[in-house]
Amino acid sequence: MPHKAAQSTRPLVRVVVAVLLIAPFVIYLAVPSYAKIKPRLAGFPFFYWWQLLWVILTAAFIGIAYALTRSGGGRTPAGGPTDEKGE
């Protein structure tokens, strides 16, 4: 395990990655929060453009999580104590 020293040296990164990966669940499962017509965007009711927008944001969040776990020591937070190797 050549990169073991990297483990939990950047706890902040792990927290950020956790937030990035959990946020889409919170957004999408709060169904009543976006079940409305207005405001419309380009004809799309809020219900639709909000959810489509979050597809792009979810992809971006995962991309950032990838970049963070790739360059630094922090790993995916749910990786638990064994998931420590940097890449």
């Binding site: 889409p24 669940f25 999408y28 959810q51 979050w54 597809v55 969040f61 995962i62 999580a65 749910a78």
Partner: peptide, 10 residues
């Protein structure tokens, strides 16, 4: 199809 991907990532 959006929230499946954080799971794939993990």
């Amino acid at each position: 199809a959006a929230i499946a991907y954080p799971i794939v990532f993990l």
